[in-house]
Design a protein around this nucleic acid. Structure first.
Lengths: 110, 110
DNA sequence: CGGCTATATAACCGCAAGAGCATGTACTGT
DNA sequence: ACAGTACATGCTCTTGCGGTTATATAGCCG
């Protein structure tokens, strides 16, 4: 194991899976809806949903034959946590830039 | 095109490439150093570095035969931007929880 | 219970990506 | 100029993944 953050990265590398998440960000959806909106075959969507499910990125609620898929935030928070040390770096860079600008004479190019 | 955020996701899906970024987060490194620390063949490292370079995630500074690879933050900021709407969702969830707790009577189980 | 709807699973195909090895290239010091 | 160092590139092989079609499963309605 290379860390729990591996899963989200790997899973989200797929553009269609990110697309699915974008759709689920608005509201839960049926597999059929996703199939229509993505323009992919139903088995294709189901396969992506399985991957997303196993990574904990989505959850399912069953209603008769229908399955409502909904967003789950946990793995995305892990991703955010992974990103955190890097975010600190660019915050620092921004601080440095601000300090730099404060030190600079008020000058504009020709 | 599916959005400029595709590249970072795709590139960072590789565990070794994330490992490389972690190392470069501390300080710039030579290819040889990375080879040693990752336990991968030198061509392997070079190939990953090429991918990272083309995605703008690292930059190179040449010094004689040596190449100092260093972190570049741009694509990571795009990743952060992609994450932003989701982050808002869990901030909301946290707000809701706080409000909920405020409304609750001060009660402990057991 | 029979046919229909909604979704999952299986089997297969094609491609792209990663690993390893061999080799090319660029710069160095003496 | 030569031998050595540091890195990149090309090639081949294999594996994994996404896509599709066909089929299984489960629940509904009449």
């Amino acid at each position: 194991m290379l860390g729990v953050v591996s899963a989200p990265f790997d899973v989200l590398a797929e553009p269609r899976r990110r697309q699915i998440l974008e759709l689920l960000r608005q509201r839960p959806r049926l597999v059929g809806e996703l199939t229509t909106e993505l323009g992919v075959s139903q088995p294709g969507v189901s396969k992506h949903l399985r991957v997303l499910r196993e990574a904990g990125l989505v959850g399912v609620r069953q209603d008769a034959q229908r399955r409502w898929y909904e967003l789950r935030l946990g793995p995305l928070r892990e991703l955010d946590a992974w990103l955190h040390p890097y975010r600190m770096l660019w915050d620092d860079a921004l601080d440095d830039l601000e300090k730099h600008l404060e030190t600079m004479p008020d000058r504009t190019e020709g």
